[in-house]
Amino acid sequence: MIAIIDYGMGNLHSVRKAFERMGAETIISNHPNELKKVEKIVLPGVGSFGDAVQALRKYGLEEVIYQHIQEKKPFLGICLGMHILLEASQESEAVAGLGIIPGVVKKFEASSHLKVPHIGWNQINFRRLNCPLFKGVDDASSVYFCHSYFAQPKDNMVIAATTDYGIEFCSILWKDNIFATQFHPEKSQQVGLKIIENFVTL
């Protein structure tokens, strides 16, 4: 069973639909007791960093996520769900992140060459070829991004793939059982569905 955490940050149906298409049994939940029982957790999220972290804390889900990760169960963060794993974000400086991955979340600097938000299809360049999410996915595949902020982990070894948008930023994060994508796999057609399938079959 895969749980998609519902903490009031955006629509979860398209995420759920994509997982079900790839054969997963899913629940959408924000109940700690329910979430403690599942094998895998997906943390999506659209909105602002501060609101998201506060919503997680309000529902008592921070502990659930720590525990899930500590038990070495697979976890996937998507977009804002990736940012939350870090220590802090320029988006909401007063609110601390979960700090599971050392590092910070920064904003792209707009210029005449660089539009912010970064919206559209861009390539993922594999750094760590053995990442389980890459099975059957070609290096430099295009996926859909929609964000103004990006994660900057302290440890380069957790960066499984990067994407070039003015700078090379971390587009897939992987540390043991923790996975996170800056892009939206559920909106990335075949490539995205393949990545989801790889997570489902972990």
């Binding site: 629509n11 149906h13 398209s14 639909k17 994509a18 298409r21 859909y144 929609c146 939206h184 559920e186 909106k187 990335s188 057609q189 995205g192 569905l193």
Partner: peptide, 10 residues
């Protein structure tokens, strides 16, 4: 809602 259930693109 119906469209969202059937497509995997933005």
């Amino acid at each position: 809602e119906k469209i969202a259930q059937n497509i995997f693109m933005p």
